[in-house]
Computed example of a mutant assay.
Amino acid sequence: MSRDRYILIARILHWVLSIGMIAEILLGLYSDGLPYGAGQAAARVTFLYSIHKTAGVALLAIAIVFALWLQLGPRRPGPEGRIGWDHALGRLVYWGLFVGMLAIPLTGPILHGNGPSWGYAPILWPWNDRVPGVPDAFAANRSVSAFHVQSWWLFAGLSIVHVLLWFRRRHLRRRFGTAPRIARLTVSARLSRLAPFAGVMMWLVVAALAA
Rank of each mutant, 00 (worst) to 15 (best):
M21S: 09
L70W: 05
A63I: 02
L111A: 10
G81M: 05
M202Y: 05
A58M: 12
N141E: 01
F47Q: 14
A198T: 12
L26W: 11
F167K: 09
L8D: 14
L89G: 01
L26E: 09
G108K: 03
S31I: 07
F197E: 14
A195F: 01
A146L: 04
I25G: 08
E24I: 15
F147A: 06
W69A: 15
L97G: 11
V149P: 05
R169F: 13
I9Y: 10
A183Q: 11
L68K: 08
R169I: 10
H112F: 00
G157H: 03
G157K: 07
R3C: 05
R181C: 05
L59Y: 07
A10V: 09
A211L: 09
L172W: 00
V93E: 05
D86P: 02
S31K: 04
G108R: 00
S188R: 10
Y36R: 14
I64C: 07
R181Y: 14
S151R: 03
W85K: 12
A156F: 08
L204M: 14
W118N: 09
L70A: 12
A10M: 04
S2Y: 02
W127E: 13
I64F: 11
A43K: 13
H162W: 03
R193L: 11
G33N: 09
G39L: 07
A121W: 07
L72K: 14
I110L: 02
Q71T: 06
L191M: 06
F155K: 07
H148V: 07
H162P: 06
G28I: 00
I22N: 00
A38N: 14
P132F: 01
R181G: 04
G177Q: 11
I22D: 00
S2H: 08
W85G: 15
V134S: 03
F167T: 12
R168L: 03
L158P: 00
R184T: 12
N141R: 01
